[in-house]
């Protein structure tokens, strides 16, 4: 199903674990350095209300004066577990695109503030880069370097799977528990 901007609370709360979505609108990249910076009280250079954050450190090069995205798949999200939930609440972030899933603290905040975790296919940097139709800006490039900067990506039909929803469900929690059971049975 299509998930189009604006990413309002209603639209986000309607999503359920297991749904495959295609995202259209503006998303902001942000990974380790950005999350640490915001957590320590740094001011966000963009308005994050009803936004989607993309855990991604893209390969972007300048060709003939404009930015061209060469590769843009998700990075591992769990590193942002200490920061993500509180930042969702403080700035009204409605969605996080990443890979590998996040933990109980983020899940709790998803429920509390009305947010979801959207799992993109890790490593699929070309398929996903094709869905970035424009680079609308870049922030904090000097401080954090290109992979860690905040890139404004205009995406169209960007594919992801809802793996944590605003109703307390997490595919990651379920698969972990089921695989631990299966391992015990193997002995």
């Amino acid at each position: 199903m299509l998930l189009e901007a604006p990413f309002t609370e209603d639209r986000i709360r309607a999503l359920r674990v297991g749904q495959e979505v295609e995202i259209t609108g503006l998303v902001y990249t942000g990974r380790d350095a950005v999350h640490k910076y915001l957590h320590e009280g740094g001011k966000p250079p963009v308005d994050l209300r009803d936004s989607i954050i993309y855990h991604c450190g893209p390969v972007v090069v300048k060709e003939k004066g404009r930015w061209v995205v060469k590769a843009a798949g998700p990075t591992t999200s769990i590193r942002e577990e200490p920061y993500q939930g509180p930042l969702m609440e403080q700035y009204g972030i409605r969605g996080v695109i990443g890979k590998g899933g996040m933990g109980p603290k983020t899940l709790e905040y998803c429920q509390k503030v009305g947010a979801v975790y959207l799992h993109a296919i890790g490593g699929a940097a070309q398929v996903l880069a094709e869905r970035v139709v424009a680079v609308e800006g870049v922030h904090m490039m000097e401080e954090f370097g290109s992979p860690e900067a905040i890139w404004e990506f205009r995406v169209e039909r960007f594919p992801a799977v809802v793996t944590m929803d605003a109703h307390g469900q997490s595919l990651h929690r379920d698969v972990l528990a089921a695989s631990q059971d299966a391992l015990r049975q193997l002995g």
Partner: peptide, 26 residues
């Protein structure tokens, strides 16, 4: 979802080779 994930992976392998661009951004 597993099958669709692997489809995306296979599409990505083809695209990276054809465009001569990184398989993964990392």
């Amino acid at each position: 979802i597993a099958k669709s994930a692997l489809r995306t992976v296979l599409d990505n392998i083809e695209l990276a080779r054809d465009k001569s661009q990184p398989m993964c951004q990392d």
